[in-house]
Amino acid sequence: MDAFVTHRGKVAVLDWSDVNTDLIIPARYLTRVERTGYGTLLFADKRYVADGSPSAENPLQHGDLAPDFPINRGEFRDATILLVGKNFGCGSSREHAVWAVAQAGFRVVIAPGLGEGFADIFEGNSFNNGLLPIELPDDSWKRLVDQLRAGGEMTIDLQNKTVTSHAPGSPEQTFAFEVPEENRQRLLKGLDFIAETLLEEPAINAYEKNAPAWAAAIG
């Protein structure tokens, strides 16, 4: 996993609430057994004109972008930071949703509501893929959305846990954010969490020795 320390990039706004993982990537694409090739499948049933969504076999072959879908707007082109509504990523546990967001070029997703911006599983999957999920208080999030709705940039500083907006013709706004410290350290260092856990093997062995006999799966 690539380390994440600071990032500056363009912003896109999709301020719908309860965006679920079926919307982020429909189930018919989950027949793929690869870990890559999901970028063009992001919002596949919304992002392209009618009948324009790609097939699971050929993700790169798709129709024109649907002009009315928010993230397709010209001012959001090449965005790497996505401002989304509350409870983003609810529903299915599919990590394909995070792969699609990340492989479409996003490095940060920002949602409103401390503890309710992201669905739990989506949030965990994001950290495991180097996609930084940030929750801001409702009013801070709204001020950013109002300022950046017509396009702009942001700087995300994970070292100092701040986000700063850069919108043409308006003053910069900086807000502090919190993420779980374990996740922050892993992102800052780009650690492989399985290798890290395997260092704890003696503790796992000890646990297994003391497990109750009935908990074994003996068929």
Partner: peptide
């Protein structure tokens, strides 16, 4: 509870899972 594919790999390899708070 449900987990993502990275966590599936972690459980396969270690039979454990890190959980935040």
């Amino acid at each position: 509870f449900g987990i993502g594919t990275s966590e599936v790999e972690h459980v396969l390899a270690t039979q454990t899972l890190w959980q935040g708070s």
